[in-house]
Design a protein around this nucleic acid. Structure first.
Lengths: 182, 182
DNA sequence: GTCTATATACAGATAGAC
DNA sequence: GTCTATCTGTATATAGAC
């Protein structure tokens, strides 16, 4: 828990990077070790099985998400704007963790699916007080899901995604707030 | 083009089913052949390589999507409601094709990513006349993406997804229409 | 058109040296 | 703690019989 070894973190970063850029299939132990700059044996000292490697990535996501929710609650212009703005992939550690774990989830990994649901529930609870009703809340959550989904496709793809940014994003946030304000 | 062999379609159905239920990794030639009730050799007569199998699935998606867009345009209560209602996964051939190709896209398959973008553009163009402006259009598209994203995670997962249905869905559609009507 | 048998490559994991 | 070497299973693909 307190100050994990550096090599372990480097392996985890490499694993996430391959998942994001090339997909679950390419994220092998061998490729992860190579990208992290360690040997297969070295990787296997830290993570005895592939399952252990995946579990560690999922745990990282949950830790980061819990920290993020606290930030959203304290956003200056309300939780909704902060939440939607953070739904745009900026390449932060949390963003990368979500996309990486999404890859595992799409591969049928049950723990990954469960973790993503828990994270989504965390956000939903943080945003609920700012939505007029449950329908409005669903609208906000779905727009956020949509933003993330387009990100997940865009990363590592040659074609740029249709994700709104800058003035476009601000206009979208304003529209969602107008439609859902409590 | 005109009336493809039955065995070919059966193989394609099996391939899509495994992609949806177990992910890209599990969707091997061997598993596909077994699920389709043919031998590996039999499968390889119809699809000489794995790439050919994937290309055929992508082609099926584009054909189905083009048919779907025509239906949306003729929806009785407007394109927006029809579009969002069709964004809920009902297990139709089109829904299955989208989720299956999404799995390929998440695996880094460039043609799959490009096809999904083309399909999204098709829908965007069909809905545009019914949106007040581009921001409203983005809201509609993102809600649809969000619905599909939750579906894609829910399929094959033990935990049921948070996808709205019935009265919940109708309330959501009404809210989106109120916020975006041209 | 569909099958069996097989070649070749690479996955995850183990053993044990340093 | 990190390495090399190796075992075992399984992936895609080929060859060729029926």
């Amino acid at each position: 828990m307190s100050r994990p070894p550096l090599a372990r973190e480097k392996v985890l970063d490499a694993f996430a990077a391959i998942l994001i850029d090339e997909g679950e299939r390419a994220a092998t132990m061998d490729a992860t070790a190579r990208a992290a700059g360690v040997s297969k044996g070295g990787l296997l000292y830290h993570f005895g099985t592939k399952e252990a490697l995946e579990a560690a990535l999922i745990e990282r996501l949950e830790t980061l998400a819990q920290e993020d929710v606290e930030q959203i609650k304290g956003a200056p212009d309300g939780a909704v704007a902060g939440f939607l703005r953070s739904s745009i992939n900026t390449g932060s550690v949390l963003d990368r963790a979500i996309v990486a774990v999404s890859r595992l989830a799409q591969g049928g990994h049950p723990a990954a699916v469960a973790a993503l649901r828990r994270v989504r529930d965390l956000w939903e609870d943080a945003v609920r007080p700012f939505a007029a009703d449950e329908t409005a809340l669903q609208l906000i959550m779905l727009v956020s899901d949509g933003l993330y989904f387009n990100n997940a496709l865009a990363v590592g793809a040659s074609v740029p995604g249709p994700t709104p940014d800058g003035a476009e994003l601000e206009a979208l946030i304003a529209l969602v707030q107008r439609a859902t304000r409590a």
